[in-house]
């Protein structure tokens, strides 16, 4: 069963990289089914399936479905105590809610991402969070906060030498 799950995962990832997002989701749903088998029960594999399903639905234009899968990813990453994955799930949720034009919720998740990036000392992640937060605050017309995060983004970009 473990090998079968891995094979489904590899097929899903290959279809995804080929741009066949619908086929990718079918394989990643198989991964989830195998991971959920009571005699098997692999939370890490289940978590990976949810992130991959979230990603594929972005390119299928189903941002609402992506948000649900990313929330499951977030929940499992917390159970598995994997902070890097937790940060990534928050970042994905922030971007997904931006696509859904729900900027308040986007800010909520980008702030969560920012906190974890700071905890982990991830300056690149922190810079991206500030960039995203600046944009989201502009969308809400909150220019004071937008400026605050744009300044922070500039400071971090200079520090890490990101001229772009």
């Amino acid at each position: 069963r473990a090998a079968q799950g891995r094979a489904y995962g590899n097929l899903g990832n290959t279809q995804y990289l080929l741009g066949n997002f619908s086929k990718a989701t079918a394989f990643h749903k198989e991964v989830r089914s195998v991971a959920l088998l009571p005699e098997f029960g692999d939370r890490a594999a289940e978590r990976r399936a949810y992130s991959n399903l979230g990603n594929a639905h972005i390119f299928l234009g189903r941002f609402d479905i992506s948000a649900e899968y990313y929330k499951k990813t977030l929940q499992l990453s917390r159970q598995l105590k994997d902070q890097a994955v937790e940060a990534q799930a928050c970042y994905s949720l922030g971007n997904t809610y931006t696509l859904l034009q729900d900027y308040e919720r986007a800010i909520e998740y980008h702030l969560k991402h920012l906190l974890i990036a700071q905890e982990l000392g991830d300056r690149v992640g922190e810079g991206r969070a500030c960039w995203s937060l600046g944009n989201a605050y502009v969308s809400l017309g909150n220019h004071d906060q937008a400026l605050r995060f744009a300044r922070k983004h500039l400071e971090i970009s200079q520090e890490i030498g990101d001229r772009n």
Binding site: Y16, A45, R48, N52, N55, F59, Y91, T98, L99, A136
Partner: peptide
Amino acid sequence: VERTHLIQVDSVQRWMEDLKLMTDCE
């Protein structure tokens, strides 16, 4: 409004470009 929208899309666009090459595997 249009300018705001363009700025907004920028950081999400960058995320989506990275995402297209990102697979979560063992």
